[in-house]
Write a protein that binds this DNA or RNA. Structure first.
Length: 233
DNA sequence: GACCAGGCACATC
DNA sequence: GATGTGCATGGT
């Protein structure tokens, strides 16, 4: 595709907020629960994750200590509804092991670390990639990091602000170099993009009713380009 | 029954 | 470095 112009990030944000209202993320009772949810929701719908979280809660496993002591087998069976349960059970274990090894299982120790250092450490944990790390940083620890996900890319590229296969860091920098590093706003912004993605920007989009439809977006050209090839990006 | 969902690691070229 | 594949359930 041709040259991309800089997306009007403030305008987009206010449009979304005006249309959908505050999303009050992350849906969780504790910081630790946010971190668990961040791993469980990898490539998985939140409704399925909720079922897994409910099971963990029912078994009183939503604390670092309890999760550390439960067997891998039991853990996997409880998080079944979240999908990829064998993989995710290991990932949760890797994460709690890391949490105890680095911070003695104490949130207050983790949260006082500069987020740039913490981010690097999180990324070194097997099973934690950039989106999961940033979700933990922003939503569990309230660090000013912008979370990029597939919806973010899809929405920006549909509106021709982004190459569809731009990498994570490129997309993240668009936001973090052009907005105030504001935890509350980053929280809301990402949640709003997910809301837009779920509601209107799915594989069968109705972009003519998208609240961003007049922001650098040629709906007719979009349809001509994508109608026979699918809308997945 | 196909397709999708708030990714990531690993193999292979 | 780019590209492909396995992981798995539940909703539409």
């Amino acid at each position: 595709m041709g040259e991309k112009t800089q997306p009007p990030l403030r305008r987009i944000y206010h449009r979304l907020l005006n249309r959908f209202g505050p999303q009050s993320w992350w849906p969780a009772r504790t910081r630790f629960e946010v971190m668990v949810g961040a791993i469980l929701t990898q490539n998985t719908s939140w409704t399925n994750v909720e079922k897994a979280i409910a099971e963990l809660r029912r078994h009183r496993l939503l604390t670092p200590g309890a999760l550390k002591n439960v067997s891998l087998k039991t853990l996997a069976s409880l998080i079944r509804p979240a999908g990829y349960f064998n993989v995710k059970a290991k990932r949760l274990k890797h994460f709690v092991d890391f949490f105890f090894k680095e911070y003695d299982g104490r949130l207050e120790r983790m949260i006082q670390e500069p987020w740039e250092d913490l981010r690097k450490k999180l990324l070194s944990v097997n099973g934690i990639g950039p989106e999961t790390a940033d979700s933990i940083l922003l939503y569990a620890l309230e660090k000013p990091v912008f979370v990029v996900d597939s919806y973010t890319k899809r929405i920006l590229s549909r509106h021709n602000f982004l190459d569809p296969d731009a990498d994570y860091q490129t997309v993240q920098e668009i936001f973090m170099k052009n907005l105030r590093l504001d935890v509350k706003m980053f929280n809301e912004y990402h949640a709003l993009l997910v809301r837009l993605g779920k509601e209107l920007c799915k594989s069968n989009p109705r972009c003519e009713v998208c609240p961003l439809n007049d922001i650098n977006f040629d709906y007719k050209a979009f349809l001509e380009k994508n109608f026979f090839t699918g809308f997945t990006k």
